[in-house]
Computed example of a mutant assay.
Amino acid sequence: MVPAPLTPEAADSRARLLSAALRLFAENGFAKTSIRQIAEAAGANTALISYYFGDKKGLYNAAYAEPLGGPMQVDAGPDGDSLDIFLEQFLTAFMRPLDMGDQVELCMRLHFREMLDPTGLWQQELEEEIKPMHATLARLLCRAVGAASPDEDVHRLALAISALPLQYYANRELIQQMAPQLLDDPECLQATTRRLIDFAHHLIAGEARRRQALAGDAS
């Protein structure tokens, strides 16, 4: 059964709780953040946390996933074999949350904190999202570069492509000092995404040429 839409007032209360939870969980971690602290920071009743999120863990799960848009949904086209479609969807989805401004910094702090002090969400994300995404990319790359199966260099290439958008999260403060328009201007952010897609294709083409050269030298 689909839940009824929230009223504007209820939606505002839920959003304030989620925002307060994101900040406090990012700053203090799950164990050191109380329901009461979150409710006070949001200017809401603690009972609303139970109503909207079930419990503290439910609120933590929502703060971890919702601001970034939930699990990344990427496919490889109707036949499951289009590297071009996969790269465009993957890199676009990866870059899209950067338009949230300063909130994305809290999201990254919370994700890094979860990796260092896990509650189980990081492992779940790793098994259900990151590993399958990497496996699909590696499979598609094999076809593009002429590899029979994912070898070490295919994995290196897949990781290099994944690192292209990741640097805009990990180096956000540095980018703000050197070229803030890359993050602050929506049109510039879209252009950056398009260029990252181009860069990924260049990396793939370079690896294909390298393998072809090695095969020619061996023959």
Rank of each mutant, 00 (worst) to 15 (best):
C107E: 08
D99L: 12
G80R: 10
G29S: 04
C107D: 01
E88N: 09
G80H: 10
E114I: 05
D55L: 03
N28S: 13
T46V: 14
P67T: 06
A11Y: 05
L59F: 01
V74S: 06
M100I: 09
R23L: 03
P3Y: 02
F94C: 13
A21V: 06
Q37V: 09
D102G: 03
F53Y: 09
D102C: 01
Q103A: 14
Y64K: 05
R36C: 00
D99P: 03
G29Y: 09
G43R: 05
F86L: 14
P97F: 08
P8S: 13
P8A: 14
D102W: 02
L110P: 03
A93C: 07
A62Y: 00
A39E: 01
L83A: 03
D79E: 15
A10G: 12
F90T: 06
D75P: 00
A44Q: 11
L59K: 01
R16D: 10
Q73G: 07
G101D: 08
H111V: 10
A62H: 03
G69K: 08
A4N: 11
L24R: 14
T92C: 04
I38H: 00
T92E: 09
M72A: 11
P71H: 09
L98D: 07
K57S: 05
Q89I: 14
G58P: 01
E27F: 00
K56D: 04
D81Y: 03
Y52I: 05
L83T: 06
R16G: 10
T33V: 04
E66H: 10
D75T: 10
A41I: 03
A76V: 07
G77L: 07
Q89L: 11
G70A: 05
M115G: 03
